[in-house]
Design a protein around this nucleic acid. Structure first.
Lengths: 339, 339
DNA sequence: AAGGGTTATTAAACCGGTTTAATGATCGAA
DNA sequence: TTCGATCATTAAACCGGTTTAATAACCCTT
């Protein structure tokens, strides 16, 4: 590859001049510009992004840290989130660096990434990385609230507690007395928040809430979301007494529907299904159309990107954005059940 | 941020020594190593990835160029492909830079990316970028074959022609005489290859092939894949005479199924559906379970990553990988139709 | 005690850009 | 004609690492 020096030499000008021709930060006369561009073309010269980044201390790259499950696949939620991030970043001229490498805890090996800021998914409890990024002066935005809550950190999240309350309220109002909740993995804050919301709804309606009716997704037990839904119904429908199921994702709901078909349970007549949806288009295409809560993962991603870019421009800025998840009633819930 | 100089000064050693402590490329005595690490910790020093990249001329980043549709969303195929790329890259210590920015054709603005190599999706006909990357000496791997074919380029692709032939053969054997093909966008090589495969099957069975029965996805007409499927059936079922539909993706099949439900057409009794699937788990979860061709986008991605890493280590290396797409019979096709 | 062979460390050059401060050229006004 | 102002260009320093060639320190042998 030709360098800026090669161009400068051949065009008979200085490095600085060539630099200015390309960056346009300083006006260069018509003639000189033309000669430089011509030589550059001749030599096949393109500015080196890394050298430039080193100099201006900016890479125009946003880092996106996603913890992948052990089998290396990402969920529909992840995928839509990424989509949102990319969309917003592209719009503002940023590229996105995906990082799924397990974090090295050996600081000797820990090397700063070539990014101007970082969006981090599913922060852990008391996540030490948050402090580390702060110390390094790298702008950070979380997707999913920090635990414990901390409003000196920028983050975006759904109104999980409220959404779960809403779902519970809707089901109980419709006459359901007992509900199976196929919740997310128990180590996630969303799982905790949602359970609280649902409990609150039961309390509000003066009905007893059974912890046993809350399942948690478990990597070791379930090979996939659909399998989680399928197995949970197969295992519990006989033994437990419920007339409605709330599922963690649309995929889980697909598994529930398959189990219902095999057991000859009519949906929604004998079993109502509500999905906490991460795939807006899927819910309306399956039969029966799924009543669901739209989480808008893409919006979460886009907002996270906006927040990050804001923060890159002003480190002192931090903000929290709550994406309103709301119930969309379709066909998978009965409204006059009272089993 | 503290720099290597700060550490060197405070530890009373030279830059080079500090560098060696972190990179471990040269042995440094026990005592010196300890003092340097201690000072580094004290100062909160982490090696600067960009400076390091500039010096060693390697970033350990693979670029992934995906053309996003105008609404900025990616398809399930894209998403799975990315998944595969990430999985393989992570395994080998590479990170992935997603680039969806439209390519600047103004060479003044065109800046080399901070990547060691590039995986490019859906190359265009006579894609000028291929030559450009070659000229810049950047390792390149395509996902989707180059057009025209060129075996001096590394790429991965499905055996599209063959797969389409297989599908056609299966349907014609089953007694179908007329098939609607909801093909991909007409500017894609896959669309071309698949059509050829299908035509070949008709020829082989001595049946007439009607160009009118091949539709192409069109961004301007269809808001989504499902809508494409839905509308195509609604518009043509009465007028055209077909007993089977081949769809570009599972989502398109979902639209077809919805249209069938609304028109009271039984699947598979009166209409058979086969999806060229990009979402393995979805096909088996919907009702009826979709007979489909598994494209294994994740495998394509993983293979592309492998090829790229190979090529980064040896520029002269180039290889082509064909991922075998094969028909999986489930429930959505009748086998004794002859309408 | 001097010479030869290791080994550990350093100073300086280098990677390929940007930017600052200084220089040179050009022009209009006094 | 000369001075000052404006503008284009340049030389050199800088960004934060790696690496090479030279030096210094050490150990062992004769």
């Amino acid at each position: 590859m030709a360098t800026i020096d090669d161009v400068a030499r051949k065009a008979g000008v200085s490095k600085g001049t060539v630099s200015s021709v390309f960056s346009k930060k300083r006006p260069i006369s018509q003639q000189v510009t033309e000669r430089v561009l011509e030589v550059a073309k001749e030599l096949g010269y393109f500015p080196n992004h890394i050298a430039r980044s080193l100099s201006i201390k900016k890479t125009m790259i946003a880092g996106l840290r996603i913890p992948l499950s052990s089998d290396g696949t990402m969920s529909a939620f992840d995928s839509q989130m990424i989509n949102g991030v990319i969309k917003e970043c592209s719009k503002q001229g940023y590229r996105v660096l995906l990082d799924t490498l397990p974090e090295q805890d050996d600081p000797t090996l820990f090397s700063q990434d070539p990014v101007d800021g970082i969006i981090m998914l599913n922060p852990r409890k008391n996540d030490t990385r948050i402090g580390r990024y702060n110390q390094m002066g790298i702008p950070l935005v979380l997707v999913g609230r920090p635990d414990p809550l901390d409003d000196s950190i920028s983050y975006v999240d759904n109104n999980n507690t409220e959404a779960a309350y809403q779902v519970g309220d809707y089901l109980l109002r419709s006459g359901h007395k007992s509900v199976l909740f196929l919740n997310a993995s128990s180590d996630m804050t969303v799982a905790y928040d949602r359970k609280n919301g649902l409990m609150e709804a039961f309390r509000h309606h003066g009905l007893p809430f059974s912890e046993e009716h809350v399942m948690h997704y478990n990597r070791k037990l379930h090979v996939s979301g659909t399998e989680y839904g399928y197995m949970s119904i197969m295992d519990t429908f006989e033994a437990m007494n419920y007339s409605a199921v709330i599922t963690d994702t649309d995929r889980v709901a697909l598994g529930v529907l398959r189990a219902a078909r095999e057991l000859g349970i009519e949906v929604p007549e004998r079993l109502s299904v509500i999905a906490l949806s991460n795939d807006a288009t899927l819910a309306q295409e399956i039969n029966p159309k799924l009543t669901s809560v739209e989480l808008s993962a893409d919006l979460l991603g886009a907002e996270a990107a906006k927040l990050l870019i804001e923060k890159m421009n002003d480190m002192s800025m931090n903000r929290q954005v709550i994406i309103h998840a709301k119930l969309v009633v379709r066909e998978s819930c009965s409204t006059q059940n009272s089993s």
